[in-house]
Design a protein around this nucleic acid. Structure first.
Length: 569
RNA sequence: GACUUGCUAGCUCAGCUGGUAGAGCACAUCCCUUUUAAGGAUGGGGUCCUGGGUUCGAACCCCAGGCAAGUCACCA
């Protein structure tokens, strides 16, 4: 059964039929070669008018102002919008004016994609425009677009801004909201800039498995799936760290991957179940080098994407210019709570947590407790990019022990605007230590920590062959893009954020089914008799009949006093 | 998972104490040859998220559900 069409959709489908009747293919197959685009015309026409005597452009019709024998319209292509001018007698040279009066004025609609041949000129008001010599319909739009108008002050009127519709129909969002299109261009630029930086250093971009038998490299709940012919459960990766390090073992000295990771956890404005992380591992380096490298990288990315290292994010101005402050985590905690946790054991820290009113439970180990205190009291203060370093060993099972203090690790997290953006280690390459750390995780898991890491025996085996000293770093791409595009919601930087499926419309409601069943037996029946037989409440009866009428399945016919219900087709 | 708010025309939104569903844009018809958020006139368009209930009568009140956003919880 076909969808009930709105009035505007019906008009467009009628236009479609009329076009066919006139021999105009509304979806022609052949290519339309363009000579320029909206942006180029606007930027270059003033200085190089000769280049624009004959142009071919194409795009979506976004507005029309029709005035008798002449009209203005706007065409939008990827580069932007340009005004076009339709003059009846220019388009229709002879007596037959139907191309203008009928095809342009009546059979084209906003949203249609058209190609135009013409000449660039300036209107009396000074707007660079294309005078149309001929036009061709390239694709008909059967649904009306939301119309967003922008006034001289740049204020949008009637903006298409319902988040649910914008995310579910991102294609519409992209058509009508240029700032959204821009955000995603910046996202691509971020990735390109990073890739360029890594490649210039000779590092190798690689791909590692998304389906993993052991979900390693991070602490998170995984998605689980099943491979039929192997008859094995597999996990969607929560991280790719252990695979990239295997490649370092294999002899590559710098590898990186832009990876989609998947975590089966809550969703909010900073978490989507699938998200993008860039991880890089470089042999013969440590975390001090990696801090220098990260600063340099982010300054470059910001400059490449925005032209400046200064970024306005909400109420804060963030400066990505290197170097960044480096603060050991215990110093940070001491600064904001007054407590020095350096030499405190688990029980002592638990008491301090209670004193600080940090919520704790018994499954939390020393590392997690410290993390809670940091998260509660310190994180939010680090607005400008800051490296928090030297995390306690319990928090970092894949990270090498600190060269000066065996209770600490050589780890840093980069905080920006109070949020973690990057995470890096001097990688643990001692296989015996690694196995012990995995076993510690196992104990945590037995204690009730449902996200403690699994033991990956093959990874330990790889380390036993010897991994060079290595430093690795991961950057949350989505979060970085949020900062660089001033978006507080991760959904604004993902083309298609995860959502529950739209509810399927039922073909027939229960009341409709009841009425239809009776009708099928009778093919036509008096109204009051049918109503009696159906035995529905007034409300259900009304809704049912209204629905059937709308779906063109039944009709009420009036003959004098009598009202009959007739079954259609 | 909990709470709060929202869901009305293609879009953005009004809709009072329950009493004939409204506006702007968009759309249709007519007039108009340089307009620009927006020329003029006239007109059409609704599963008021869904299902039940209360009521003479529900967009509105009650119950259950759906989806979304926000806050919290969980989580890097």
């Amino acid at each position: 059964m076909s969808r009930v069409l709105s009035e505007q959709e019906k008009f467009r489908r009628e236009a479609l039929k009329e076009l066919h009747k006139r021999g105009i293919d509304p979806f022609p197959p052949e290519a339309f070669e363009r000579t320029t685009n909206a942006k180029e015309i606007k930027e270059r026409f003033d200085s190089h008018p000769a280049e624009f005597e004959e142009v071919k452009i194409a795009g979506r019709l976004m507005s029309r102002r029709i005035m008798g024998k002449a009209s203005f319209a706007e065409i939008q292509d990827q580069s932007g919008r340009i005004q076009v001018y339709f003059n009846r007698d220019e388009i229709c040279e002879g007596e037959d004016k139907s191309l203008y009066n009928d095809v342009f004025k009546k059979l084209l609609d906003i949203g249609d994609i058209i190609g135009i041949e013409g000449k660039v000129f300036k209107t009396q008001v000074g707007e660079t425009s294309v005078e149309v010599k001929s036009f061709k319909l390239l694709s008909k739009a059967l649904r009306p677009l939301p119309i967003v108008k922008t006034d001289k002050e740049g204020q949008a009127h009637d903006a298409f801004n319902d988040p649910e519709q914008r995310y579910r129909q991102r294609y519409v969002d992209l058509i009508v909201n240029p700032q959204v299109r821009d955000t995603f261009i910046k996202r691509t630029k971020v990735i390109n800039s990073m890739r360029e930086f890594f490649n210039s250093k000779g590092y190798l971009e690689v791909e590692t498995p998304i389906l993993q038998p052991i979900p390693g490299g991070a602490a998170a709940r995984p998605f689980i799936t099943h491979h039929n012919s192997l008859n094995t459960d597999l996990y969607l990766r929560i991280a790719n760290e252990l695979y990239l390090k295997r490649l370092i073992v294999g002899g590559y000295e710098g590898v990186y991957e832009f990876a989609k990771d998947f975590r089966n956890e809550g969703m909010d404005r900073t978490h989507n179940p699938e998200f993008t992380v860039m991880e890089i591992y470089v042999a013969y380096k440590d975390y001090n080098w990696m801090m220098d490298f990260t600063e340099e990288l982010l300054e470059k990315v910001s400059t490449d994407v925005l032209g400046t290292s200064e970024v306005q994010f909400q109420d804060n101005k963030i400066n990505f210019k290197a170097p960044y402050r480096r603060v050991p985590i215990f110093d940070a905690i001491k600064e904001f709570t007054g407590h020095d946790l350096t030499d405190k054991n688990e029980d002592e820290i638990r008491d301090i947590c209670k004193e600080l009113k940090v919520e704790v439970d018994d499954s939390m180990g020393r590392g997690k407790l410290i993390d809670e205190v940091f998260g509660e009291y310190c994180e939010k203060h680090f607005i400008q990019p800051t490296f928090i370093t030297d995390y306690p060993i319990e928090m970092s099972p894949l990270c090498k022990k600190h060269r000066e203090n065996p209770n600490l690790t050589e780890r840093f997290e980069l905080m920006v605007n109070g949020k973690e953006v990057a995470n890096a280690y001097t990688e643990l390459n001692d296989p015996i230590d690694q196995l012990e750390r995995f076993q510690e995780q196992l104990k945590l898991s037995e204690k009730g920590d449902d996200e403690a890491m699994f033991i990956d025996q093959d990874f330990v085996r790889a380390l036993e062959y010897g991994m060079p000293p290595t430093s690795g770093m991961g950057i949350g791409i989505d979060r970085l893009v949020m900062f660089l595009t001033n978006n507080v919601s991760i959904q604004e930087v993902l083309f298609f954020p995860q959502m529950k499926p739209e509810a399927k419309k039922v073909e027939l409601t229960d009341s409709e089914k009841v009425i239809l069943e009776i009708l099928k037996g009778e093919s036509e029946i008096e109204l009051h008799e049918l109503k009696e037989k159906a035995g529905l409440s007034n409300k259900q009866w009304d809704k049912g009949m209204k629905g059937l009428n709308q779906k063109s399945l039944a009709k009420v016919e009036v003959e004098g006093e009598k009202k009959k219900v007739v079954l259609l087709n």
